[in-house]
Simulated scan of single mutants.
Amino acid sequence: MMIVLSAGAAAAGALKGVVQNIIAPVSGLTSFPTLTIVNSSGLPLNTTDLKVNNPVITIFYYPLQDDPNFLLRLGDSSNMDIKINSTEVVIPANGNTFTSPDGVGPHGSVVAFSAICQHLGCVPPIIHYYPPSAKNEISDLPSNASSPAYIHCGCHGSTYDPYRGAAVTTGPTARPLPNVILDYDPTLDNYKVKSMVGPTIYGKPNDLEGGTPFPTGTTTTPIVLLGSGV
């Protein structure tokens, strides 16, 4: 089911989350599971469950129970869906690149990224999505920043562009957020998560280790709301 936590409660667990991601136990999976994302009623998530540019922090866990990921329905400054196209994303740390997935859903506007900052592992609510209405609250955003909105980490100022595969906009991070690959069923208007691409999730030996697997037979992962976002 959907779980709603206050920003204060989430903040209290943030440091613990950082430590867990720095010193992660080595256990995990041999392959990526395919899980259906479910809503507050435990039913498969529909597009209407997602608000365009929602400032409320919306996450789900994948591929392990310890791995939070942002779930975003992106739009413009008028809160109209924007189709997100696949793009080549540079990893500044090593110069390598990867191809981000297209947005999914009826408007191609739904995307998902790891919610663990790639700099030092800070987690929500310290890192969260700033919608177009709150973009100016990111004080260290460069003047030439052109995306409608950003993911920003309040620990040390790292900023990511969710419209371009969570590419690095400002450091100190030298790695984009790992991208989550979603699968959309237009007939049922349902969303599944099936894999990840990009750099390894922060603090892990690889995406499938360093945490607790879902119980055997698990087929769903619920969305979780953390406070009110910005």
Rank of each mutant, 00 (worst) to 15 (best):
S133W: 00
P178D: 07
T220L: 03
P92T: 15
A11F: 08
P131A: 07
N54R: 08
G157I: 14
G8V: 05
V90K: 04
A7V: 07
C153A: 08
V104I: 06
T99D: 09
I23G: 01
H128W: 03
S27C: 00
A145C: 14
G28S: 07
N190L: 06
Y62E: 02
L74P: 02
P25Q: 05
G103Q: 10
P199C: 03
D81Y: 02
K135A: 03
S228G: 10
V193L: 05
G28D: 12
I91A: 01
P132R: 02
Y129C: 08
F98N: 05
P176M: 02
I201D: 04
L72K: 10
Q20W: 03
I37A: 11
Y202Q: 11
S109F: 04
P125M: 04
T221D: 01
P68M: 00
G171F: 10
F32D: 10
P222I: 05
I91S: 02
S228I: 03
D102W: 07
N69G: 00
N190Y: 13
R73N: 13
Y202M: 08
C155I: 08
L50R: 08
A9D: 15
K192E: 15
T187P: 12
S139L: 02
G103E: 12
S158D: 14
G13I: 10
V52C: 12
P186N: 15
S27L: 13
D66E: 03
S78C: 06
N54K: 12
V52Q: 09
T48S: 14
M1C: 10
L141M: 11
H119S: 04
G13Y: 09
K194E: 01
N54I: 01
G8M: 06
T200G: 08
A9H: 13
H128I: 00
S143R: 11
K16A: 10
G157M: 08
S41Y: 11
N46D: 13
P124G: 11
D49T: 12
V168T: 06
I23N: 12
R175N: 05
I181C: 13
K194H: 06
N85Y: 13
P101Q: 13
N79Y: 14
C153K: 06
N190A: 13
N46E: 12
G227A: 02
H119C: 04
D66T: 15
G211T: 07
T48Y: 09
Y163F: 15
I151V: 15
S6T: 15
S195K: 11
F60H: 11
D140F: 12
T218A: 14
A115V: 06
A149V: 02
G8K: 15
